[in-house]
């Protein structure tokens, strides 16, 4: 356990001494801020129109009209920035030769992977926490429902965790960071849009494609529905990524 923490601490330090974490977090926040602003602006104009009619006015819901689309936009931005966070994790070690230090130290490959995974999760969590500042305004001037918002954040975190699992796997495959990022991005996008194919599929395939798609599982979470099957999906996705990474790195030890 301690070993995992040692590796994580080193990775977190590297994230924050190099500009990577700052740039990724800043870009993420600027984009989220922009989407938040436009969602609020739209909600505002809709509310004014709705206030003409008491019935519709009842329907105006900040969770549905601001947070749900915002979470969807945030998930797309995550899809774009997570590959940039994970691309260096193993690629760089291989490129500059520091993997030789790690693999000749008395710590296991599993501990190294989990340490790096943990570090990326910390950056993801800080990114999401900082967007929490936006909610200060909605709570000050409106009455959104907190559990539903937290549910959305949980969804984003789990999805990010799954993305990082995929990213780490591709990073372990190559010593070129660009290749690692492009492969991660391609794989994530493919899993995202997999449910498009399900429109034309039928029977079992439709179910399979729907289940595999990132999008389908995220939709529930933004609407405030916490379904264990979605949790299981994201966690198993992350686990599978880490498992493949372990196999790739361990194959070095095959005779």
């Amino acid at each position: 356990m301690k070993n995992i923490w040692y590796v994580a601490k080193k990775e977190i330090k590297t994230y924050f001494t190099s500009p990577i974490a700052y740039v990724v977090i800043a870009v993420f926040l600027v984009l989220v801020g922009f989407f938040f602003y436009s969602a609020i602006w739209w909600f505002n104009s809709q509310s004014i129109q709705m206030s003409q009619n008491p019935y519709y006015y009842q329907q105006a819901n900040i969770n549905q009209m601001v947070y749900a689309p915002l979470f969807h936009n945030m998930s797309i931005i995550l899809l774009l920035v997570i590959p940039l966070l994970t691309m260096r994790l193993f690629s760089e070690e291989k490129k500059i030769g520091t993997d030789e230090l790690l693999y000749t130290s008395p710590i296991s490959v599993g501990q190294i992977i989990l340490g790096k995974y943990l570090a990326a999760l910390v950056v993801l969590a800080s990114m999401l926490l900082l967007t929490g500042l936006l909610s200060v305004f909605t709570f000050a001037f409106g009455n959104p429902e907190l559990p539903q918002i937290l549910n959305g954040y949980l969804g984003l975190f789990l999805m990010g965790a799954a993305f990082i699992g995929v990213g780490i796997f591709f990073s372990s495959l190559t010593e070129n960071q660009i290749v690692s990022a492009v492969l991660t991005f391609g794989a994530l996008l493919l899993f995202w849009i997999l449910n498009w194919a399900s429109y034309s599929a039928s029977g079992m395939w439709k179910g399979v494609l729907d289940y595999l798609s990132f999008f389908q599982h995220f939709d529930d979470l933004t609407r405030g529905i916490l379904d264990t099957s979605d949790l299981v999906y994201y966690l198993s996705f992350a686990f599978f990524g880490l498992f493949l990474t372990h196999s790739v790195l361990q194959s070095r030890r095959w005779r």
């Binding site: 080193k10 330090k13 590297t14 001494t17 190099s18 500059i96 030769g97 520091t98 993997d99 030789e100 230090l101 000749t104």
Partner: peptide
Amino acid sequence: IIGYLPETVPLYPEM
């Protein structure tokens, strides 16, 4: 029990 200096010194430039 082994201390190892590889051919390319395994250093993290940003530390």
